Simulated scan of single mutants.
Amino acid sequence: MKMIHELIEEVKDEVIGWRRYLHKYPELSFQEEKTAQFVYETLQTFGDLEIIRPTKTSVMARLIGQQPGKVIVLRADMDALPIEEENDFDFVSQSSGVMHACGHDGHTAMLLGAAKILTQVKDQIKGEVRFLFQHAEELPPGGAQELVAAGVLDGVDMIIGTHLMSTLPFGKIGLSYGPMMAGADTFRISVVGKGGHASQPELTIDPIAIGTQIVTNLQHIVSRYCDAQETLVISVTQFHAGSAINVIPSNVRIGGSVRSFNPNLREKIPTYIERIVKGITEAHGATYEYDYQFGYAPTINDEEVTKLLDEAVCEVFGEKSREYIKPIMGSEDFSAYQKVVPGSYIFIGARNGENGIIHPHHHPKFDIDEQALQFGVKLFVHGTLKILN
């Protein structure tokens, strides 16, 4: 019987090939029909898997071990982004305006590699492994909550997810106990005033002057409304007003993003924002419309699951590869699974400055060091066997 390290080495080129194929043919969120079909057909070649399609553009395969035990889910996302790729390698995107600019092609390939290997060592598995290929991570409300509703976590004890990171050098694996990624919410504000000629502002209710006061005062929420030790970001990212240089418009549209970790603080932010908007608009005789949308919740890693993975990382890669990282303000719908079962989300270093792999996620020249794919496969395989056995 072949050893696990031999199986991992054997699948290396295949994993890279899968990643390159997926990179060449990306699909946007909720449109991953060909991607899902490719994953489905590839899984069929492994044997011993019960494969289902929980939603139109997702796939889940179940590997049931020969002995009873826990049930663990390994998750990969599959969707691409609406970005025109600017790379020039052989497997550049063939879909105009669509690109795998966040590493999801690599995530899918790594999980396929892990599924192939674990299927071959089925006799060593106590319990059940579910390989979950998720659609639509990039576009709220996201695919994770759809899959939870479809029952993919029924009977599950824990879930593991990974992300290839361009901010972390190849050879490093990033772990975090507790908060890992922030919750991400959005707001939209419309200030309704009274337009008029720029030469007669006294006859108007100037929504631009009012809107700029709102933007300025929103920053007081972070600096004066909450504990200085809390992590909170409120960014105004849109301000639309006017169409002519000599006209004061009748309304202004403001939009922005809120990032936080503390669930209690997160619930208060909509009220804080509206209090400021209401006070300023009333003071100047204007009215307003306000919409606040809660997006992905914070990704908070379970202590016990993370500890087991921490041990697996040290055993397989050595302590020098492990890196404890600070929580980041990006967001992930992996949090939808963590609301239901304990889970841990891990970063795999994919940056290589010597090879020019330096561009951030969502950049038109984003790429990964493909050596990192083997790290992901190893982590999935050894982490699974450690937890289940």
Rank of each mutant, 00 (worst) to 15 (best):
A241R: 09
R266N: 05
S257H: 12
I346V: 06
T45K: 15
K24S: 06
G318N: 02
E146S: 15
T186G: 02
I348H: 13
G142L: 08
Q145D: 05
V92S: 12
M180A: 08
Q200Y: 11
I280Y: 14
A36Y: 01
L168A: 04
L385V: 03
T162V: 08
F294A: 01
S260M: 09
L111K: 04
K320P: 06
F239Y: 15
M99H: 09
L49P: 05
L232C: 05
V247W: 12
Q293K: 11
G65N: 05
F334C: 03
D88W: 14
M180P: 06
G285W: 05
G255M: 01
A372I: 03
G256K: 11
I245S: 15
A283T: 00
K278P: 07
G211A: 05
A114S: 10
T167C: 09
F38D: 00
C226E: 09
K378W: 09
V11E: 00
V381L: 15
I269H: 07
L81E: 14
Y345E: 01
T119C: 05
N251A: 08
L218T: 06
R253F: 15
D369S: 00
S93A: 03
H362R: 12
T167M: 10
N352G: 14
L164G: 03
G383M: 07
P342R: 11
S166N: 12
V39D: 03
E354I: 04
S176W: 15
Y337W: 03
G195N: 03
T108V: 04
R75T: 00
V39L: 07
P54C: 00
M110C: 11
Q374F: 08
L265R: 00
Q219G: 03
H284W: 15
L309H: 13
M165V: 09
R322F: 05
H197M: 03
Y272P: 01
G376E: 04
G353I: 00
E289M: 13
G196H: 08
Q371E: 14
V59Y: 11
A184K: 10
G161I: 07
I221C: 00
F334E: 02
P26I: 01
T299A: 14
T287Y: 09
P298I: 03
S321F: 01
Q200N: 04
L81R: 11
G196D: 14
K116P: 04
L153R: 06
I387G: 10
G279N: 08
H284E: 13
L118W: 13
V258M: 07
Y290A: 07
A336H: 00
D310W: 15
Q94D: 06
V148R: 04
T45P: 06
T167H: 11
G295E: 03
I328P: 13
I51L: 03
A244K: 10
H240D: 15
